[in-house]
Each structure stands twice: as structure tokens, then as C-alpha cells.
């Protein structure tokens, strides 16, 4: 079955999907990596600055790729699911860290 060609219909909802759940995803990935590499989030540390740049880059990538979704709804679901997953992982990690420390 051949898929219908991609169009620019739903451009607004695709863009908003990249900007809103896309931002949640970018920040979530940043926090996840931050958890994993033990960053403190202090803006003057190297890790925090790298993570900040990374988040900006991921957000730009979301915005660049959102037009590849078939529909606006698809884009919202795509970015939304990923963001939920990442933030779930963050919550779990934070919980483990809190539980693990005396």
C-alpha cells in the first residue's frame, strides 16, 4: 500500500506540536541526561551548559521534523507520547534517587 504524499495541511497544529510537547520533550531529555550524568544544574558548570545547548538543539530538531508527520494530531501524539515517556523516566529516576539516599 502506497502512502498518500505528504502535504503542508495542518501546518499550524504540527508547528504547535513541535513548540509545546516538543519543548516538553526537549527539556525532558535534558533532565534525563542530567540525571544520568549526575549534573547539578548549576548554570556555571560545564554539564549544565552542555545540557542547555542540547535542549535548544532538540527543540530545533522537533520543529524541523514535525512536518514529516502525516497529520497535526499525529504530531501531537508523537511528541506527546515521547515527552510523557521521558518525564515518566525522570520521575522514576528522581524517586529512586530520593529513596536510595539516607
Amino acid at each position: 500500500m502506497k502512502a498518500a504524499p505528504l502535504t503542508t495541511r495542518h501546518w499550524l497544529s504540527k508547528t504547535l506540536a513541535a513548540l509545546i510537547p516538543g519543548a516538553a520533550l526537549a527539556l525532558g531529555v535534558m533532565v534525563l541526561i542530567g540525571h544520568l550524568c549526575g549534573s547539578t544544574g548549576n548554570p556555571m558548570t560545564l554539564s549544565a551548559q552542555f545540557l542547555m545547548w542540547g535542549a535548544a538543539l532538540i527543540w530545533v530538531l522537533c520543529l524541523s521534523l514535525c512536518f514529516l508527520f502525516r497529520s497535526g494530531l499525529g504530531a501531537w501524539f508523537g511528541f506527546g507520547w515521547l515527552a510523557c515517556l521521558v518525564w515518566l523516566a525522570n520521575t522514576l529516576l528522581a524517586g529512586f534517587a530520593a529513596g536510595g539516599s539516607p
Binding site: 549526575g38 547539578t40 525522570n90
Partner: peptide
């Protein structure tokens, strides 16, 4: 990329402060 960072770094850093600072406080 730098312009995006200039505009949003405060927001991004405050997210880091909110979600990363807590559990490592004192460690580093």
C-alpha cells in the same frame, strides 16, 4: 542556535535548577 539559546537559556536553566539541583545538593 546561539540566538535560540540567548532567548531561552533562563527558562532552560530554571528547569534544570528545578529538576536536577535537588537530589545532588551538597554532593558537588
Amino acid at each position: 542556535l546561539t540566538s535560540v539559546v540567548f532567548a531561552f537559556h533562563d527558562v532552560i536553566f530554571s528547569v534544570q535548577a528545578g529538576f536536577l539541583a535537588g537530589e545532588h545538593r551538597g554532593a558537588e
